[in-house]
Amino acid sequence: MIVDVALSPGSLDDISERVAGEYSRGVQRLLIERLRSHGALVWASRRELTATLDLIRAGDGLTEGEKKEWSDLLIWLKQGGRVRLSVDSDDCALESLTRWSPSVESSFAGRPIVAILSQRIFGRLFPDAQEGLVATSSDFEVATGAMAPFASPFARLQALADLEAYPPGTQREDIWQQLLAPLAARSKQVTIFDRYAFAELFRRRQSGSSEPEHLEWLLKKLDSHAPRGTVVKVFGSVGYGHGGSAVPQPPGQIAAALLQRMPTRLTRLAGVELHTLTGIHAHPHDRHISFGSTFGLELPSGLDRLAKTQISHTFSFGYKWREGQLQALRDREIAVALARPRVTSVYA
Rank of each mutant, 00 (worst) to 15 (best):
V104W: 08
R330W: 10
S96V: 14
L306Q: 05
I175D: 03
P212C: 03
D331P: 00
L117N: 00
L73W: 02
L326M: 12
R265W: 11
L62K: 01
Y23C: 06
G10N: 06
L215T: 07
F315P: 10
P263D: 11
P9Y: 01
R120I: 07
I280W: 08
I192T: 03
A109G: 13
S106E: 15
I2F: 12
D88K: 04
D194N: 05
H225K: 07
S245K: 06
P102C: 07
F198P: 08
V5Y: 03
I2C: 01
L73K: 02
G252E: 13
E164I: 10
A51V: 05
R18F: 09
A135F: 01
Q206H: 12
D14M: 02
G236V: 03
R99M: 14
C92A: 15
L269R: 00
R34V: 04
A58Q: 14
E69I: 01
L73Q: 00
L299G: 05
R205Q: 14
L74F: 12
T344C: 04
A307K: 12
D13I: 13
D304V: 05
M147C: 10
K78E: 13
R204P: 01
D91I: 10
G145C: 07
R265T: 15
F140L: 06
P167C: 12
A51I: 05
W100E: 08
A51S: 09
F150H: 13
T98C: 04
A348Y: 12
S245Y: 11
L329M: 14
W217F: 11
W321D: 05
D14Q: 09
L215I: 12
S103C: 08
Q253S: 14
S16E: 04
L259Y: 05
S96E: 12
A58F: 07
H288I: 04
S290A: 14
P167R: 11
A40I: 13
H275S: 05
A270H: 11
P112L: 09
L74E: 07
A165I: 10
F198M: 10
A129Q: 02
F198Y: 11
L277G: 08
V346M: 06
S107D: 08
R340V: 14
D128K: 10
M262W: 07
S101F: 06
R186D: 06
I32Q: 07
W70T: 00
R305N: 08
L94W: 04
T52E: 02
I175M: 09
G81Q: 09
Q171T: 09
A6F: 02
C92F: 15
I15S: 00
L77Q: 04
A257L: 02
W100A: 04
I289T: 04
H242D: 13
D88M: 06
A143N: 01
L12N: 00
A6L: 12
D139R: 13
R99Q: 14
G80Y: 01
Q158G: 11
Q158Y: 08
L183M: 15
Q189H: 13
V343K: 06
R203Y: 12
M1R: 05
K67R: 15
G241L: 08
E69C: 00
Q310E: 15
E95M: 05
G110C: 12
M147F: 05
